[in-house]
C-alpha cells in the first residue's frame, strides 16, 4: 500500500465476481500519498492486567512500557484508551490513510481486533524545517519548537532508544515510545476568552506565534523578562511549563493531529488535539512534563484528557525482515 499497490494479491476489481474483493477499493486511482505506517506494542502485549505473561514475551517488556499513571484532568474513556498493538497510518490524503487502516484491520480479523481508532486532520506540529507551523483548534501555532528531522543530534538524544538503555529490552534499541493522548478542548468556553488572555495562557502571540517576550516565531522565549505583572511570559503559561528549560532539557517529537468527532450531547464540539509524541523514555520525556502541565498550566482549564495509551515502537526494518522482528525472533 505504501507503494500505491492494492492491499491484496488480486486487487479491488480484478477478482472473481463471486468473491468479496481483497482490496476494498476506495483508493482506486489514488497515489500512495506518502503513506507511512508505524507499528507499536502496548504493555498488555507482554503482560495482562494481572501481570501474567501472555505470549512468552514478559521478560522482554521494556521497563518504561507501563500503563501511564493517572494525571489530574484525566477523564479517560477506556473505549478510547490502551491497547496491545497500535498502527498509525499517515498520508497526504485521508482516504489513503483510511484505506490502510481498513484493509489492515480486515486482514487481521481473527488474530487481532480493533479496540479504538482516532481520525485526525491538520497536523499539529511540524516535523521538518521545510514545513510551516500549523495551528491547533485553539487557533494557535502548535509545535514551533518541535524536534525537526533535520536536528539529527536531538532526534538521536530525545527520540530513539539508545542501545543498552534498557537491558531487558535491547530489541527496542533504535526504536521509540509513542505516547498518545486525546486532549478534548472545551472549544466553546475557550472561544469566549479575550485575545489577551488566550495569548497569556499560551505565552505566545496568536498571529505570528512569537513568544510574549518578543521577536518572531522562532525567537527563544525569555522567561525572565519582566512584564507588567510578573514575568511577561506568565508563570502558568503553557510555553513555559513544557519548555525544555524547565524539564531537564527534555524535548519530544510530536506528530499529533487535530480532531473533530462531531458534537457531544449538549451541542459542544467533541474536538481537540490528538497528541502523539515520540520519545526515548516516557519516564523522563513525558510523565514529568504532563504532570507539570496538569498541575500548573493555564490551558488545563480548557482541556480534558479522554484517551491515553503508550506503545513501544520498534526500529525500522531492512528488506526481507518483518515488523518487530527484533522482539519476536
Amino acid at each position: 500500500m505504501t507503494r500505491g499497490l492494492p492491499a491484496g494479491e488480486i486487487g479491488p476489481t480484478e477478482g472473481s465476481v463471486n468473491l468479496p474483493p481483497d482490496d476494498t477499493g476506495e483508493a482506486i486511482g489514488l497515489p500512495a500519498g506518502g503513506l507511512t505506517i508505524t507499528f507499536g506494542f502496548g504493555p498488555t502485549l507482554f503482560r495482562d492486567d494481572d501481570g501474567r505473561d501472555r505470549f512468552g514475551l514478559a521478560d522482554r517488556q521494556p521497563q518504561a512500557l507501563r500503563t501511564l499513571p493517572h494525571f489530574p484532568a484525566d477523564v479517560l474513556d477506556p473505549a478510547k484508551s490502551y491497547g496491545d498493538l497500535c498502527v498509525q497510518a499517515c498520508a497526504d490524503d485521508p482516504q489513503v490513510a483510511v484505506h490502510a487502516i481498513r484493509n489492515l484491520a480486515r486482514i487481521g480479523f481473527g488474530t487481532v481486533a480493533v479496540r479504538w481508532s482516532q481520525l485526525g486532520f491538520g497536523r499539529t506540529s511540524t516535523t521538518s524545517t521545510a514545513q510551516s507551523t500549523p495551528r491547533n483548534l485553539f487557533g494557535f501555532k502548535d509545535g514551533t519548537s518541535n524536534i525537526k528531522s533535520e536536528e539529527t543530534k536531538d532526534v538521536e538524544e530525545h527520540v530513539w532508544v539508545a542501545p543498552g538503555a534498557d537491558a531487558k529490552a535491547d530489541w527496542l534499541a533504535g526504536g521509540s515510545y509513542l505516547v498518545a493522548r486525546r486532549f478534548n478542548m472545551n472549544i466553546e468556553i475557550w472561544d469566549r476568552q479575550t485575545l489577551g488572555d488566550q495569548e497569556d495562557f499560551i505565552g505566545r502571540t496568536k498571529d505570528t506565534g512569537a513568544p510574549l517576550s518578543g521577536g518572531t516565531e522562532f525567537t527563544e522565549p525569555d522567561f525572565s523578562m519582566p512584564g507588567s505583572n510578573g514575568p511577561v511570559i506568565a508563570k502558568d503559561a503553557h510555553v513555559r511549563l513544557v519548555h525544555p528549560d524547565f524539564n531537564h532539557g527534555a524535548r519530544m517529537l510530536r506528530r499529533g493531529y487535530n480532531f473533530v468527532d462531531g458534537s457531544n450531547a449538549i451541542g459542544g464540539l467533541d474536538a481537540g488535539l490528538f497528541f502523539i509524541a515520540y520519545v526515548c523514555d516516557p519516564d523522563t520525556h513525558f510523565i514529568p512534563i504532563q504532570n507539570a502541565m496538569a498541575k500548573s498550566d493555564a490551558l488545563m482549564e480548557y482541556l480534558k484528557v479522554t484517551g491515553s495509551a503508550l506503545f513501544a515502537v520498534p526500529s525500522g526494518i531492512k528488506p526481507g525482515e518483518y515488523v518487530g522482528q527484533s522482539l519476536f525472533a
Partner: peptide
C-alpha cells in the same frame, strides 16, 4: 507529517 484518517466533516 501528513494527514491521517481525516474526518468527513459534515
Amino acid at each position: 507529517m501528513r494527514t491521517p484518517l481525516i474526518v468527513a466533516l459534515l
